[in-house]
Amino acid sequence: MIPVTLEHYLIVSVLMFSLGLAGVMLRRNALVVFMSLELMLNASNLALVAFSRFNGNLHGQIFVFFIITVAAAEVAVGLAIIVALFRRRQTVQVDEINSMRL
């Protein structure tokens, strides 16, 4: 079996990112779109941790730490927006939200 190198981790990260992108474009449910966004964020985290490991310094891991923090804040705000939207429109399907009027 070939040894696992940096490329393997990066390819996994690439696949994960594309999967998240496909989810964002495929799904109509705003919540699932949001989960796919989380997948994309995590894919970039994996790439950064792999780079950090194979460069022998910790700057990549510090970056991931900040990304996780910002992602948590982003999830809280995004879900609050979805809840506010649902109160107005009684739907979370993104293709039914096609007007900027309240």
Binding site: V14, L21, A22, L26
Partner: peptide, 30 residues
């Protein structure tokens, strides 16, 4: 769905070709 899969697949292929073109690196202890 076809368009979404096409775009995601194209992105994956392009990124993978960039990854493959990178010079090899050894794991360094942290």
């Amino acid at each position: 769905a076809g368009g979404a899969l096409l775009v995601a697949g194209a992105l994956a292929w392009k990124l993978a070709s960039v990854v493959m073109a990178m010079p090899a690196a050894d794991a360094k202890p942290v």
